[in-house]
Write a protein that binds this DNA or RNA. Structure first.
Lengths: 215, 215
DNA sequence: TAGATTGTTAATCGATTAACAATC
DNA sequence: TAGATTGTTAATCGATTAACAATC
């Protein structure tokens, strides 16, 4: 089986995740059809953008009706591997690492956390939900033996690159970086960043601009 | 005092947060100067982009030397209100809400969490760090009396819009949305999203594409 | 001085929007 | 049928990159 769409632009991919979430909700509420206009209105986009985006998929809408929610859901799920089980490890058992390990949303979406690690001896051995915090030295064997796909970096910025290097050397396939720093990997290992503080700063900037207008 | 730069594009703003973090690190390591090339190499950009971005700031570099780290840090801090204290409340005392309330990085960057709320009676009254979980009914008075700037939404998607409406009605200035859904607000109240699951899905897609190449 | 790096202009590239024929 | 909505093309818009004169 080959994918009909060899390369979907990243800007489109990011919106496709929104469609996936929204269509999942529509389906659970029993909606059979959805139009590009409805999707656009609910997600703050234009209907033109939605149609343009969906045209990248191996899936067609119907004139005068829109898109079948079940078909759209299926094809979007496939694009994002939501029909696959992904194995993850979390490195860093601080507040963020703990929250991720306990967050049920991940399990529900097919992302399974198989291990959590820390370098602090006082934390090693403690339990977080059903998981036991392990020594970071055990990362390589865990990644290799359990066919781990994704490594989550939830350590301070100063340790992030070292952890990434270790993950890469151990055969990780992709990295989710929650540390406030840029990480370098070989091209074969994609990295995505979740930058919470940066997002807050972006918000602070936006708020300041509003204020300035009012002055 | 007026800002010389009336409007910096969002794409630039997002990179400016990266420069801010990196320059902060450089300064703490005692570096006095940084060039556009050095910034670019460390953050995965081109030097052209860096110079273009920094030209939006009320700050000039020096030929043959680059940019003074202390000046660059000062002007970037100002753009993102890092020199201001921001007051926040967190709504939702689940794993994510707890993690945010305990995360020290926020305090350090000037984002102070002044309250945490939940609608679950069993959680109300419990402590998270120095904060006590309060009933969501107390959100409006808290926002008003404590001059809260930012509301963090850490509730399930189904409750997110309702919480946002309440925050807006109570005079919040901006919203950080951690829920997996699109939120609508009046234009005067900016919203930024932290979409962790969507980011993971983006990563899953990227990994799948690599795999396909190898096949 | 010679040479490295900025700031800026112009060129390229990509993303979004508008428009409309095709269609059910 | 009439009319709503898709899929797609072309136009617009914005972002990135290349190039280079100015400069210290």
């Amino acid at each position: 089986m080959t994918d009909a769409q060899p390369c979907i632009p990243l800007s489109v991919i990011r919106r496709l995740t929104k469609y996936l979430t929204h269509v999942q909700g529509l389906r659970s509420r029993g909606a059979e059809w959805v139009s590009s206009r409805e999707l656009a209105d609910n997600l703050g986009l234009t209907s033109s953008t939605v149609r343009q985006d969906l045209s990248h998929l191996d899936f067609c809408g119907t004139s005068r009706r829109g898109y079948k929610t079940c078909g759209l859901y299926a094809v979007l799920s496939h694009v994002f591997g939501a029909d696959i089980a992904w194995n993850m490890v979390v490195v860093g058992a601080g507040n963020l690492g703990r929250a991720l390990a306990l967050h049920e949303e991940f399990q529900r979406r097919g992302f399974h956390i198989c291990g959590i690690f820390d370098s602090d001896d006082r934390k090693i051995g403690r339990k977080i939900g059903r998981l036991t915090i392990q020594n970071v030295r055990r990362i390589p064997t865990t990644i290799r033996n359990n066919r781990i796909d994704v490594g989550v970096i939830a350590v301070p910025a100063s340790a992030a690159q070292r952890v990434a290097d270790l993950m890469v050397a151990s055969g990780i396939r992709g990295i989710l970086n929650m540390a406030q720093t840029h990480i370098v990997t070989p091209k074969r290992v994609p990295v995505v960043d979740v930058r919470i503080v940066a997002t807050l700063q972006e918000l602070a900037h936006a708020i300041s601009r509003i204020k300035n207008k009012a002055d």
